[in-house]
Design a protein around this nucleic acid. Structure first.
Lengths: 136, 136
DNA sequence: CAGCATCCTAGCCGATACTG
DNA sequence: CAGTATCGGCTAGGATGCTG
């Protein structure tokens, strides 16, 4: 029942310092989270800069507060740029960085892998609604 | 400044129903989250079944309650199996399913990709601690 | 327009105590 | 041993109002 996993598949984890490992896990978790992923996705679709209010419209269901917070985090992680045009009224544009675009591609690859197996996950859900596994 | 993203990279998203898309996003988010990932990681390292109490020891810092919850979710997602041996005292063993093992491999691939770019993220962090981007 | 500040609530999570 | 049950702190996040 054990999947045949190459024992070297996890070797890279050991080569990181604790701080680096923590950072990598953080980025992984954040980039897969609901709002950051949707935001990066919208920015990638647009293939160009997007104003704050456009993002607020296109990232469906997000509140202004959460959008602001998420963008700040994405910015400090180097995944998006924030450009302020000092006008009245002000204009602020957000855009994916190259690093952000590449990361998104990687996350989307995983997303797609999962999406292709959605039937498997649906089956698992249905099955687990039933029995308790008992052995002797 | 726009990363050159193949416009078909996201095509698969459109082929899913809303429910399937939601499920895929859920699995993605959960599998990348802190505790589920650590748990699957420990189970994969072990290459075999592991008792509840062993998991509690090896998944460092997790509480008994959260471990239980996470395992229930992993089980209902079809990523781990829970096998009860009706003894006194009871014995319960958890093990990665093939689907769980494969998913973990995919997540670890992404994790590794990020880990290799940790210096980039560190640089971004350092840079963002400084300036506001202003254009005219 | 692009936010910040405030209030408020649901849910996460740790700690502790109890049970089959 | 492998949980369930309960309390309590903390935080993510919505709603609303205000400002440069």
């Amino acid at each position: 029942m054990v999947t045949n996993i190459d024992s070297d598949a996890f070797a890279f984890c050991e080569t990181l310092t604790d701080a680096q490992d923590a950072l990598a896990r953080e980025i992984l978790e954040r980039a897969s989270a609901k709002w950051p992923l949707r935001i990066m996705y919208v920015l990638a679709e647009t293939k160009g800069p997007l104003r704050f209010s456009r993002l607020l419209e296109r990232v469906e269901g997000i509140s202004q507060k959460v959008l602001t917070q998420a963008l700040r985090t994405l910015e400090s992680d180097g995944l998006v740029t924030r450009t302020l045009y000092p006008q009245v009224p002000p204009r602020v544009e957000y855009e994916l960085t190259p690093l952000g675009g590449e990361l998104l591609l990687q996350v989307v690859a995983l997303w797609r892998w999962i999406a292709e197996r959605v039937p498997d996950f649906e089956k698992a859900r249905a099955r687990s609604a039933g029995a308790t596994h008992i052995s002797k």
